[in-house]
């Protein structure tokens, strides 16, 4: 028999897993997954995001793919769009960079300027 507390635990755990279907306000991590992006390692980047987010138990973040943005030289490109629609674009991403973005940007709200386009250029 479950208690109310156990029920809440199930709720939280499962919601983290499937909450993306709920369409409430989410921070979206959009990874460019066109051929060029994949060739440049976008899959690994995307997987890194997913596992880092899970590891740090960060709620309200969605990771999704998008097509070619058109600046293939900067791939892998990742947009982080916050709840208000403000967009930060990270370029030349690697799984290592992802760990930092997740920790700094997604968990603590601090943009990792060093990986952004502005910095790159």
């Amino acid at each position: 028999m479950k208690t109310l507390a156990e029920l809440e635990a199930i709720r939280k755990r499962t919601f983290d897993e499937i909450g993306m279907r709920a369409h409430t306000d989410y921070t979206r991590v959009v990874v460019g997954m066109a051929t060029c992006g994949i060739a440049a390692g976008a899959r690994e980047v995307m997987n890194a995001f997913v596992s880092e987010i899970q590891k740090r138990d960060i709620a309200d973040v969605n990771v999704s793919a998008t097509g070619c943005v058109g600046v293939c030289r900067l791939e892998p490109i990742v947009d982080v769009i916050d709840k208000d629609g403000k967009k930060v674009t990270y370029v030349h991403m690697t799984p290592e960079k992802v760990a930092k973005v997740v920790l700094e940007h997604l968990a603590n709200g601090k943009i990792c300027l060093e990986y952004t386009l502005q910095e790159e250029e």
Binding site: E17, V50, Q54
Partner: peptide
């Protein structure tokens, strides 16, 4: 528990 990036 595994987190998936996408649900179909």
């Amino acid at each position: 528990m595994q987190l998936f990036r996408s649900h179909v």
